[in-house]
Design a protein around this nucleic acid. Structure first.
Lengths: 92, 92
DNA sequence: TTATATTTGACAGAAATTGACAAGTCAATA
DNA sequence: TATTGACTTGTCAATTTCTGTCAAATATAA
């Protein structure tokens, strides 16, 4: 499961928009938009900013989801992930 | 500050070994070993495995530090890092 | 079937990462 | 001050990873 993509799809569908429409507004290929929603590609910061506008969403909320995805990319399939996170939290 | 590199230097120095000696045993350039200790380069998993042997360290412990470094790479300079970590922890 | 929406696979170009080499700094000491 | 040894730094080519597009495939609905 991917945080940002799931949310983007929710937002888009709840507003009755098509992939193509959102993609056009943020000036990317529809295929890419599809991939972003399914977590097959990671969005650029700039994308998120534009998407937030188009979907009337809070940019910071989306960035949090995006960061979470990127952290997950690092720790997924890592048996020692929890330990590493504990260490990070301790230090932070 | 970097987790793994700091620990590697501790381990090496506490055993009175030279960079050159450790580097030779794990079959990398001394310059690279130096960079690993200072966090200027990220080690490969395979490196860590070999280093653990050479420095008589626990491999899993080193992997935890290595993962923590990689998570830190993602969240550093991110004002929303804490929120993202909270989200990850909640889901995990 | 036809039309429309979304997904997939393949690809080229861009960007990031890698590790080696050579040259550099620095401190100790001959 | 010259030399030596330990470590660091800059640069670079090679490799790997990532990006976004296009064309084709698949799905969904009328």
């Amino acid at each position: 499961m991917n945080y940002l993509g799931t949310r983007l799809r929710e937002l888009r569908e709840s507003q009755g928009l098509l992939l193509r429409q959102v993609a056009a507004q943020i000036d990317v290929d529809t295929a890419l938009m599809s991939k972003l929603e399914r977590g097959e590609r990671r969005a650029q910061r700039e994308h998120i900013i534009r998407i937030a506008t188009v979907l009337n969403a809070n940019e910071k909320d989306l960035i949090v989801l995006w960061l979470a995805d990127r952290i997950k990319d690092v720790i997924q399939d890592e048996p020692l992930a929890e330990e590493a996170l504990k260490l990070i939290n301790k230090t932070l």
